[in-house]
Amino acid sequence: MTPLLELNSLSCGYDNAVIVERLNFQLQSGEIACLLGPSGCGKTTVLRAIAGFNPVLAGTILQNGQTISTVGSALPPEQRSIGVVFQDYALFPHLSVYDNIAFGLQKHSGAAKRQAVAELLKLVELPDISARYPHELSGGQQQRVALARALAPKPNLLLMDEPFSNLDTDLRRQLALEVRAILKDQGIASIMVTHDQEEAFAISDKLGILAQGELQQWGSPSELYYQPVNPLVAGFVGKGELFDAECLNETSVRTELGTLEFAEPFGAQSGKRLSLFIRPADIRPSHDSGSVMATVEQKEFLGHSVVYHLLLPSGRRIESEIFEPLMFEVGSQVSLHVAAHRPIAFAR
C-alpha cells in the first residue's frame, strides 16, 4: 500500500541551518501520528516542511507516492491537500465563526457553503455559534472552530501544532479524545506535535520521539513505552531511573536494588553489563525485611497515588509511586522490591 505521506532522509531548518536531519517515517491513510519531544527540538520545523511553508535542505517528502518537496523544488502549500491547525488557532478576529470556517470554501455556492459550515459546526459540537466572533469564544471553542476551518476543504492530511497547549489539563485531555474521534470518523490522517506525553498517548496510532535533531524512534505508543530503543526514549515516554546491572542468567540481574528476577528473558549472556531502566511504579517499598533498605525522605500525596522519595545506602535518591493505600512515614526504613515483569535493558 502506498503511504499517504513518506519522509525519506529529510533534513530541514531555517536559512540553511539544519535543525532536524535524516528523518524517515511513513503515515498511512487514516492514521494519527504524534511527534513528541522537548521544546526547540524541531517538531514545528518538520511540520512546516510537510505543509510546504519551509524548503527542505536534503531528502524528499512524498504524498501518495508523488514527490511534493525536495531540494530546490516544492509543490505550493495550497496544492497539497493539507490542513493546518496552528498553536494560537490563527482565527481571523474580524470574521464571524461562519466566515472563518467558510474561508476555505470559496468554490462552494452559497447554499452548499451554508450546508457545509452547518455540518462542520455540528461535527465539532458547536451548532449554534456561527454568528459569534473569536473573542466571544472560550479557548476550547476557538480550538474546535480552528479544527472545523481546517477540515472544511476536506484535506487528506491534517497537521496540528501544539493545538491544546493554551488549555487547562482536563480540557486538553477531553479535546484530545474528541479530536481523535472526529478524525477517525472522517478518515483523515493527522500529525500532531506536542511535548506532552499523555496527550501524545491519548491521540496517536504512531508516535515519534524527536530529540537532538533526529528521530529517535517511530512506532506505536505501546512499542515506545515497553520497547524503547535507547535511554533517551525510555526517559521521555515514562519517568524512570537507569541502574547499572550485571546479567546473572537470561532472566536475572544483580543491581543496586538487589538481585532482580524477570518473567521475560534479557537475551544477554551471563556477566554482560547492562543499563536497566526501572519506573517508579515498579519500585515497591515494604515493611517486610529485604536485602535492600531505603529511608523515606519525603512523600507526595497526589490523590490517585503517593510518590515516595527514597534514599539508598549508596546516597542515591530514587522515587517510588504507589497506587494503593500503603502509607510509609518520612524517616522510616523500608525494604525495596522491583515488580516489573518486562525488563527494559540497554547494552553498556
Rank of each mutant, 00 (worst) to 15 (best):
D205R: 11
L158Y: 03
I101T: 00
A340I: 00
A49H: 13
T70H: 01
R144H: 04
Q227M: 10
T45F: 12
A148H: 00
R348A: 15
L75H: 09
G52A: 08
N230S: 10
L120D: 01
V338E: 00
S190I: 10
S29C: 12
V71N: 02
L147H: 03
L257P: 05
F103K: 01
P285E: 00
S252F: 01
Q66W: 10
F243K: 06
L151F: 07
M1D: 10
L75V: 15
L274Q: 03
N249S: 13
Q141K: 13
V84Q: 09
P127I: 05
V330E: 06
R132M: 09
T44Q: 12
G139R: 05
E223Q: 15
S252W: 03
K43M: 09
S270R: 15
C12A: 15
P3K: 12
A176M: 00
I61T: 05
E125Y: 04
A112D: 06
T259R: 09
H287C: 11
L105V: 08
A234N: 11
L183E: 02
G213F: 06
L159M: 10
L62M: 05
P280E: 00
N16R: 13
S11G: 14
E119G: 00
A263E: 14
I188L: 00
C247E: 09
T60Y: 05
M160N: 09
S305V: 00
V117I: 03
A17Q: 15
A112K: 03
S275G: 11
A150G: 03
L248C: 14
G240I: 08
I283G: 05
S220I: 04
Q227A: 14
E136L: 09
A189T: 06
L151C: 03
G267Q: 08
F266E: 12
P134N: 04
A148M: 01
I191D: 02
S138R: 02
S275I: 03
S291F: 12
R317T: 13
T45M: 11
E261N: 14
S69P: 06
A340M: 01
T169I: 08
A268R: 15
S270E: 15
A118T: 14
Q63V: 11
L312I: 09
L75K: 15
R80C: 05
L311R: 14
G235Q: 07
V97F: 02
I191F: 06
V117F: 01
E319W: 07
I278V: 07
A131I: 07
E136K: 10
S252N: 04
D88F: 06
A211S: 14
L232K: 05
T45W: 10
Q66G: 10
H341S: 12
H287M: 13
P231W: 06
K43A: 05
G315W: 12
A340D: 01
L5N: 05
Q227Y: 13
E300N: 10
F323W: 03
L23M: 09
M293Y: 13
S220Y: 01
M327T: 15
Q217P: 09
Q66H: 14
F103A: 08
Q174N: 10
G40A: 06
Q186M: 10
I50E: 01
M192A: 01
Q115L: 12
L35K: 13
